[in-house]
């Protein structure tokens, strides 16, 4: 079984986003780029499975849609342990374009299982995995919080409103994974970093896939009014404010 993990290159989640050109774009200066946290957890789980002989997982690849500037992030995924990588040379405008580029990689290779993080921490869309599955006409399972592969047979837990289901899924399929899929992201060791230098990143050119949406402009979040403090000994004043001012209780 071969697993493909789709990775997005996102600003470090602790940075404060600054806008540029009157909100036309995001100011990229000084931003440190990382593997999208959910994709990193997906990759960690895929590698755990590959390293377990009973899973039947032979190879873990990563794929990214983006320009050459994202290669350090792809190298990081290789250093963590992915066997090889794919990159489509396209600066995608939306999830549809990203998914269409990823589909072109999948159609020219043989993957049994594709993992995508539940969302990217930049556009918070939660769309690429489902779109990719529909483009490939594969089964997709969203909200996956646990993934087991035994001799090529896939079992997952899916979070549903108010509960959880355990499912048996046939490959090929796309799993959109979330919290729980792996405990801590795997960290690259020195040996992995050295090995990553010789692993291949197969680059393909943009296949002409279009985007369906465009960002017209960005706005900063609305400034919140400053906090009104109440004395710790008179919490009834707080409750009064919640009742009469905020009207939330």
């Amino acid at each position: 079984m071969n697993i493909l993990v789709c990775i997005s290159n996102v600003p470090d989640t602790t940075v404060r986003i600054k806008l540029a050109d009157n909100g036309a774009t995001i100011d990229n200066t000084g931003i440190q780029w990382i593997i999208n946290p959910w994709d990193e957890l997906a990759l960690t789980r895929a590698l755990e499975l590959r390293d377990d002989p009973s899973s039947g997982v032979k190879q873990v690849s990563v794929a990214h849609v983006g320009l050459v500037g994202a290669e350090p992030t792809i190298r990081k995924a290789l250093a963590i342990g992915a066997d090889n990588a794919y990159r489509v040379n396209c600066d995608p405008a939306d999830a549809f374009q990203t998914a269409a580029c990823l589909a072109s990689i999948v159609k020219n290779a043989s993957f049994d299982l594709i993992l995508c993080g539940i969302e990217s921490s930049d556009y918070n869309g939660s769309n690429v995995g489902g779109m990719l599955a529909e483009m490939l006409d594969w089964v997709s399972v969203s909200g996956v919080s646990f993934l087991k592969v035994e001799n090529g047979s896939i079992t997952v837990n899916r979070e549903i409103d108010g509960g959880r289901e355990t499912l048996q899924v046939q490959s090929p399929c796309v799993c959109v994974v979330q919290k729980g899929i792996a405990k801590e992201p795997r960290i690259a060791a020195m040996r992995g970093i050295m090995q990553a230098r010789t692993k291949t990143i197969a680059v393909s050119e943009w296949n002409g896939a279009e985007s369906l949406t465009t960002v017209a402009s960005y706005q900063p979040p609305k400034a919140r009014p400053s906090c009104k403090f109440f004395d710790a000994d008179s919490p009834e004043k707080l409750l009064e404010a919640l009742q009469n001012e905020a009207k939330v209780i």
Partner: peptide, 14 residues
């Protein structure tokens, strides 16, 4: 909402 609340985007659906 984008960037997990760090900014908002006006998105045009074409």
């Amino acid at each position: 909402k984008v960037f997990s609340g760090g900014a908002f985007a006006s998105l045009t659906i074409n």
